[in-house]
Simulated scan of single mutants.
Amino acid sequence: MSGLVVSGLVGVGGGWLDGGVSEIPDLDAGAVVWSHPEGDRDGRPLLVLLHGYGSHEQDLFGLVPFLPDAFTFAAVRAPLSPPFPTPGWSWFPIEGLYERDSETTTRAAERFLAWVDALGHDGPIGLLGFSQGAVIATQALRLRPDGFAFAVTLAGYADPGILPTDAALKELRPPVFWGRGARDEVIPAPLVEHTVAWLPEHVELSGRVYAGLAHSVSQDELDDVVAFLGKRLDDPAG
Rank of each mutant, 00 (worst) to 15 (best):
M1H: 14
M1W: 13
G8C: 03
L9Y: 11
G14M: 06
G14W: 01
G15Q: 13
V21P: 00
I24N: 07
L27T: 04
D28Q: 10
A29C: 10
A29N: 11
V33W: 10
G39N: 11
G43R: 08
L47M: 03
L49A: 02
L49S: 03
G52F: 01
G54W: 09
H56C: 12
V64Q: 07
L67Y: 09
A75N: 00
V76N: 01
P79S: 01
P83Q: 04
S90P: 02
S90N: 14
F92H: 08
P93T: 10
T106N: 01
A108L: 01
R111Q: 14
D117M: 02
H121N: 09
D122E: 13
I125F: 07
G129M: 06
S131I: 05
S131C: 07
G133W: 04
Q139V: 11
L141D: 05
L141V: 04
L143V: 02
F150S: 12
A151N: 04
V152D: 08
V152Y: 04
D159L: 04
L163G: 06
L163T: 06
A167W: 07
K170G: 15
L172P: 08
P174R: 04
V176K: 03
V176I: 05
F177D: 08
R180Q: 12
G181M: 00
A182W: 07
A182E: 15
R183Q: 15
R183L: 15
V186F: 00
A197Q: 15
A214N: 12
A214V: 12
S216T: 13
Q219T: 14
Q219E: 15
E221W: 02
L222K: 11
G230E: 11
R232C: 13
D234V: 11
D234P: 08
